[in-house]
Amino acid sequence: MKKSVFLGALTVASIAAGASAAATLDDVKARGKLNCGVTTGLVGFAAPDANGKWEGFDVGVCRAVAAAVLGDANAVEFVPTTGKTRFTALASGEVDMLARNTTWTLSRDVDLKFDFVGVNYYDGQGFLVSKEMGVSSAKDLDGATVCIQTGTTTELNLADFFRANNISYEPVPIETNAEGQQQYLAGACDTYTTDASGLAATRATFEDPSAHVVLPEIISKEPLGPLVRHGDNEWGDIVRWTLNALISAEELGITSTNIGELSAAPGDNPEINRMLGTEGNLGEMLGLDADWAKRAIMAGGNYGELFAKNIGESTPIALARGLNAQWKDGGLIYSPPFR
């Protein structure tokens, strides 16, 4: 019995490792579906709507990649992962890419053997507290009970922040955002900490969002972006340039409404022409056809459209562009040129 458990674990490990060696692009094409790892449910970023259809900002990246590679924005199998299971799911080949509020750090990039292909949201860790507690700064949280998602960078930032400020706290580890929300609302913890965007999204689902505030301190840098397994660079390139295409499209003024017109015939702007495949052979270089970027943009719109539709100021989550504005507007969103 003991031995068979051991063997089972080895089998899992060997199958897992075996799957990752093959070329992901061929696997995805053969399967006809993209397996995309997302959160277990964070409104605005990735959550199923009333009809069970996944929607959100991260989901938009998955759909764009599926559209670019397979020609169908709906050919995506969404695999919900927790903070703890996501890396194993990606490393084992259960998912082809992860678009799941995952912070780009050196150890994840180098030691965990993943490749971050870019940043689709510049975030930072914040604290959510109820207004009636009368707390105005995270430094007032001495002795507080803090709910924290286990297996995240926020867990390590939290330890560092309280240590650096020489104040004490009691961590309550939880597995999913839903659990954190339940414990926080029941008052089992004084504050819930995660990326500020996640807090805004969580607060938007509360019965009375105005009774809760996100404290002004942002205690970390959390560049969130999609990632793939290390070693399959062709696949990494496809995901990276799909994200870049969404970002460049906003910069160049390509939207889901005018893209049909712009891609019909070569226009005045050579970069738009190259990107949309009316000029040059960028698609071929990636191992895709000429229309790949056009389909990616048509899947959910350009970066700005995805932002506005899912988490922008007109949505309940109401996040301002801030750092996530285009570089021309004073933000950090910047794509290398298509050439």
């Binding site: 490990a13 060997s14 490792a17």
Partner: peptide, 10 residues
Amino acid sequence: NTAQNLADLG
């Protein structure tokens, strides 16, 4: 197989 695959992954 496990050792080989882990080595391939580095």
